[in-house]
């Protein structure tokens, strides 16, 4: 209680979030996990927006090993590197990324149906 009282008036900074997130364009850095249909019942999962510092190839290697699927890192002219995985791995990917501590849960956006 006392802590609260001391904190509220003095140190409330309305821009704290913005500064902490270091969000240049005002958007949060979401990791988008999408699914895409291929022919038949096949599908692709794409993971876009991981931080540049991470080694995509190492993440991919673990993802492939974990889900027993193949995948690649695709170089996109606008979006940078994107991980592609075979099959609908959205749930797997999101839980993996959260568990490994690469992304926070609230920063993952699952797309697709």
């Amino acid at each position: 209680m006392s802590e609260l009282e001391t904190q509220v008036p003095s140190t409330f900074d309305p821009f704290a979030d913005a500064n902490a997130e270091d969000s240049g364009a005002g958007t949060k850095e979401y990791v988008h996990v999408r699914v895409q249909q291929r022919n038949g019942r096949k599908s692709l999962t794409t993971v876009q927006g991981l931080k540049k510092e991470y080694s995509y190839n190492k993440i991919l290697k673990d993802l492939k090993k974990e889900f027993c699927c193949n995948g690649t890192v695709v170089q996109d002219p606008e979006l940078g590197q994107v991980i592609q995985l075979q099959g609908d791995q959205r749930k797997n990917v999101s839980s993996f990324l959260v568990q490994a501590g690469i992304v926070k849960k609230e920063n993952i956006k699952l797309h697709g149906f």
Partner: peptide, 13 residues
């Protein structure tokens, strides 16, 4: 609200 962005679409086919 956020604008609608298609994001990355892998080439299929």
């Amino acid at each position: 609200v956020a604008p609608i962005k298609a994001g990355f679409v892998a080439r299929v086919g």
